[in-house]
Amino acid sequence: MALTQHEFAFVSGLVRREAAIVLEAGKEYLVEARLLPLARRTGTVTVSEFVARAQRERVIADQIVDALTTNETSWLRDREPFTAFTDSVVPDLAERRGPQHKLRIWSAACSSGQEPYSLAMLLEESVRTGRYEILATDISTEMIERAKAGRYSQLEVNRGLPVPMLVRYFDRVGTEWQVAEALRRNVSFQKVNLAAPLPQLAPFDVVFLRNVLIYFDLETKRSVLRRIRSLMRPDGWLFLGAAETTIGIDDGFERVVAGRASAYRPRAATTAPVGATRKG
């Protein structure tokens, strides 16, 4: 569905003001191509509808500027949550659960797959991990298909992926790089809309839900957090984006410091000493 002249004028005016980028007439197809995945991700059906929302909601307008000014997702760009994951969370869980436990991780808005594969690489490198499985979900079927294929362009593998990981976990396939089969085996993909009732999933030890809540209004945020909490182990860990929090939204979570990052844990868990949690 094509953008109207009026909608395109709004978008081009927005990016000109915010990012000094000139979108000339005739670039409607580019705007649509860039915004469609984003619109889908926020549960908006058409780009037109998404642009209409941007005229009322500042957050959406910011997303449009971002989408039209940056291209690729980075792998380990926000290092703090990943460092906290390997240095604090994985050792904590290994101690609580014992070596035989299979860690279950949920990457709850996996987009093109960089986050779940980054987590898989970190778990492979972590000597304290025995077995693990990662569920990666996204609202977009297109993104799920992309992520499942695990194929990335040269530009994408340049983005925040340490080169030892590139040579260890990727194979060159034509002009692209593909995540090695051994790693892909540990990651499964499923289409999930976080804003709707969730499918029955086995409880998770760790959930990554970064830069998703910002897309939702307060009520939706609250119900998303509540549903996610119901799918977490009582002593599990939740990671949000740097600009996001559960505080003032869902009291069932408590903020804890993990390394230089903040994480969130179901409230009862933080008072229980290590080793005292029930067997899973």
Binding site: V22, L30, R34, L68, S153, Q154, G174, T175
Partner: peptide
């Protein structure tokens, strides 16, 4: 097709970073 994929990346990196003049 390979040339096209490579060219797109070179353009996005150096000649058309905003992706507006492909």
């Amino acid at each position: 097709d390979d040339l096209h994929a490579i060219t797109e990346q070179v353009w996005l990196s150096y000649l058309d970073p905003e992706g507006v003049n492909p």
